[in-house]
């Protein structure tokens, strides 16, 4: 048992080492870029990672009122809130649709091919047209985040409900359980791990969507700031800071879903504790 724990620790160590290696490679390339004679502005190609960090914690203001990290964080917060709104709406609709599809063959038959098609349609490419529909940049950001969230959640949850063994259905039937009990006691709890698989896929997508829609119109948000920094309105390091922060937010949103899943499924915790 101690061995298993040791093994788990060592795999965390390996991931950590890989992450370090990633940054090491980054720095090496940055050195090479810096020393290359043909590259005139190295900070546009690949700056040192530590320089990005340094800019983040630099006390100097860059637009008169805010320091770099204050400005990025201000915009990141707005982006996060918008994508969270879209994410929650999309996840709820996806979950409800999965239940409807499992309840009714007709709804399932109608919706399934269109769900397949939605997956193949480049929704992000449709961001501009949605903006022209709603006329309001804020609601189109939320809608796009919702559409991107909705599909993985709906299909994964439905797959979870359909993966429930025949015997569990027979068991419920032998207890003369009604539809409501079948869903609340068996199908919905059984689909929770699948539901979270969907959430893990769509959480970073919702953030991507929100940033992308930002770039279509000015205002506040990480994407807007990204466009501005690319146009040279402020130091190039702000752009890099945005790249790093948005990557970090995407990864964190994925990890957060995993933590949330662990928090609500007590049996996993108990089983892990037992294995240790």
């Amino acid at each position: 048992m101690a061995q298993i724990k040791k093994k788990k620790n060592s795999s965390t160590m390996v991931t950590l080492l890989w992450t370090l290696a990633f940054f090491l490679i980054w720095e090496l390339i940055a050195f090479w870029v810096e020393s290359s004679a043909s590259i005139r502005s190295p900070e546009k190609v690949l700056p040192h990672f530590w320089k990005i960090v340094a800019v983040a914690f630099d006390g100097k203001t860059i637009n008169g009122t805010d320091t770099a990290i204050q400005l990025v964080w201000l915009n990141a917060k707005v982006t996060l809130i918008r994508s969270a709104q879209g994410f929650v709406i999309g996840a709820s609709i996806g979950f409800l649709l999965a239940i409807l599809m499992s309840l009714s063959q007709i709804i399932k038959k109608i919706a399934f091919p269109y769900l397949m098609i939605i997956q193949m349609i480049p929704i992000l490419g449709m961001a501009p047209i949605l903006l022209s529909f709603t006329g309001d940049i804020d609601s189109s950001r939320i809608i796009i985040a919702a559409i991107l969230t909705f599909y993985p959640v709906a299909t994964n949850t439905l797959a979870g409900m359909e993966a429930v063994e025949k015997e569990k259905h027979e068991l419920m039937y032998s207890y003369a359980a009604n539809k409501w009990q079948l869903y609340t006691k068996t199908l919905i709890p059984a689909s929770i791990p699948y539901f979270f698989t969907g959430l893990k896929v769509s959480a970073p997508l919702a953030i991507t969507a929100s940033i992308l829609v930002d770039t279509l119109q000015g205002g506040i948000g990480l994407g807007c700031l990204l466009s501005q920094s690319l146009k040279g309105a402020m130091t190039r390091y702000v752009f890099w800071l945005i790249v790093v922060i948005s990557a970090a937010i995407g990864i964190l949103s994925y990890l957060l879903m995993g933590l949330l899943e662990d928090a609500i499924s007590s049996h996993k915790k108990a089983e892990r504790a037992c294995k240790r």
Binding site: E165, K168, E170, S174, A190, S265
Partner: peptide, 20 residues
């Protein structure tokens, strides 16, 4: 069945893994 006269035991235990 409606009167609850049957108890079923299957080949696999068919337990609910999220319930203790």
């Amino acid at each position: 069945r409606l009167d609850g006269k049957y108890g079923m035991v299957f080949q696999s235990p068919v337990l609910y893994e999220w319930r203790n």
